[in-house]
């Protein structure tokens, strides 16, 4: 019961604290206009280069945009706490670590999911792409697992936040890696093998592929393998993140590197 409370309540409170300074003037451009512009940009570049079609870029970029809240909010969980010097208070508390940090990830996943869905809707209106109604349930599942696995990666970055000073820069670079390697705008089949191999080990890749297949008419059974792989990859990063958190916490207690050095 206590774990569950830490999971929900603690997560929501910390999330609001992190984004409390953001006004609608900032949230709307960041989470609504931003993704639509990215979709339009790549769709138009695609038309100029003569590759892909609008649906390809719509789905790829809308799902990739979930990585922005997932990576930054999660990555900032630790960095932000360290900056406001509340990290040592948090770690001094007896609360169990796993529900504590998993709880923080829940609102982030919801944010990423909403961000992607809004981008899908607005993007399809702007580009006049029609998504078959029958594909919608599975599409939502695909977007949800992509947001989940991205948040797993975000937690791993958050753990690095105990060691690196500027997590935002790291999050930016990782976001760029996802943009290039995850088949967002260039299909994995058109990449050199080594790049496709990296792409296959990252979150998003399988989620995007599942979403594209669903919209192209694949059944739930067809894409279930991709969905399971995406969840597995996300869980692996999540586990890695939790392990790193435990390790760094122990380390930093020994070497006193917890607060702003």
């Amino acid at each position: 019961m206590t774990s569950l409370r830490i999971f929900f309540l603690g997560g929501w409170t910390s999330y609001r604290a992190l984004f409390g300074w953001l006004s609608p003037w900032i949230l709307i451009p960041t989470f609504i206009i931003g993704p639509v512009l990215q979709i339009v940009f790549f769709a138009l570049v695609g038309r100029t280069a003569g590759v892909g079609d609008d649906t390809f870029f719509l789905i790829g970029n809308a799902i990739q945009y979930a990585s922005i809240p997932c990576l930054f909010a999660m990555g900032n969980t630790i960095g932000g706490e360290r900056y406001s010097q509340t990290l040592s208070l948090l770690l001094a508390s007896p609360a169990r670590r796993v529900p504590l940090f998993l709880g923080r990830s829940l609102p982030v996943i919801v944010n990423g999911l909403l961000c992607s869905l809004i981008a899908l809707v607005l993007g399809s209106l702007v580009l006049r792409v029609t998504i078959p109604v029958s594909a919608i349930p599975m599409l939502v599942v695909a977007v949800t697992v992509a947001a989940f696995s991205c948040t797993g990666l975000g937690l791993a970055i958050a753990a690095l936040g105990l060691r690196v000073r500027d997590v935002a820069v790291l999050s930016n670079i990782v976001m760029g890696v996802l943009l290039v390697f995850c088949g967002v705008n260039v299909a994995l089949t058109a990449m050199p093998d080594w790049m496709a191999a990296i792409g296959n080990s990252l979150p998003l890749t399988h989620g995007i592929e599942a979403a594209r297949a669903t919209v192209a008419g694949a059944s739930a059974a067809d894409v279930s393998g991709l969905i399971v792989t995406e969840v597995a990859i996300g869980s692996a990063y999540l586990a890695l993140g939790l392990l790193m958190l435990a390790y760094f916490e122990r380390e930093s207690r020994r070497s006193a590197t917890l607060d702003l050095a």
Binding site: F42, A49, G50, V180, N185, V186
Partner: peptide, 26 residues
């Protein structure tokens, strides 16, 4: 660093797209 890396990320994607398109002059 970010000021240089960030544009390179987009450039990389764009180059890959045009390479896939196959038109060398484009």
């Amino acid at each position: 660093i970010l000021n240089i890396i960030y544009p390179l990320i987009f450039a990389t994607t764009v180059f890959m797209m045009f390479r896939e398109g196959g038109d060398e002059s484009a």
